[in-house]
């Protein structure tokens, strides 16, 4: 569970243009989804430039065919958040593989109408995560890798 107070978040987000709005949303989301935590890290843009940005990193719980899975995700917030949508990825562990599809590309980037049609204040992180949970519950973005590295059991003769 992430233990980050509002003062620490404000300090981390000092270059964010709408810092108070952003802090409020993050505080709200991490209180509801306790397996997500705010992390500052370098985000590399398509043109190769990089920038220190806040992400919410961790897992979101989905229910798929009656079982709960904790899907690893990273939601990057631009410094213009919430007036631009987050940039969202699934982050498969070494035991997982990405299942590309309508909502996921080979890099794990997440595409959703909710992100495409993002508009503050109707859109927010909490709503986004709820949409992800529904969409991923129908079409999981990652699956477990087959354990091909394990030695084959010898067959009984």
């Amino acid at each position: 569970m992430a233990v980050v107070n509002e003062g620490a978040l404000k300090k981390m987000l000092k270059q964010y243009k709408y810092r108070d709005l952003t802090v409020r949303e993050i505080t709200n989301v991490i209180s509801q989804y306790k397996d997500l935590k705010p992390v500052m890290d370098a985000y590399v843009f398509n043109d190769g430039s990089s920038r220190d940005l806040m992400s919410l990193t961790g897992t979101i719980p989905i229910s798929y065919r009656g079982n709960v899975y904790n899907i690893p995700v990273c939601l990057w917030l631009l410094d213009t958040y919430p007036f631009n949508p987050p940039i969202c990825f699934v982050k498969p562990t070494s035991a997982m593989m990405i299942k590309t599809g309508k909502h996921i590309d080979a890099n794990g980037k997440i595409y959703l109408p909710y992100l495409h049609e993002w508009k503050h204040p109707q859109s927010d992180l909490y709503g986004l995560i709820q949409v992800m949970i529904v969409v991923f519950g129908e079409e999981p973005p990652v699956f477990s890798r087959p354990t091909i590295a394990a030695p084959l059991p010898s067959l009984p003769s």
Binding site: M1, K37, G58, Y64, R65, N67, N70, M96, P140, V142
Partner: peptide
């Protein structure tokens, strides 16, 4: 301790 949930995924899609 600040581990969070262990990531998990459905069994391999076939």
């Amino acid at each position: 301790l600040n581990g969070g949930a262990v990531p998990s995924a459905p069994p391999t899609y076939t």
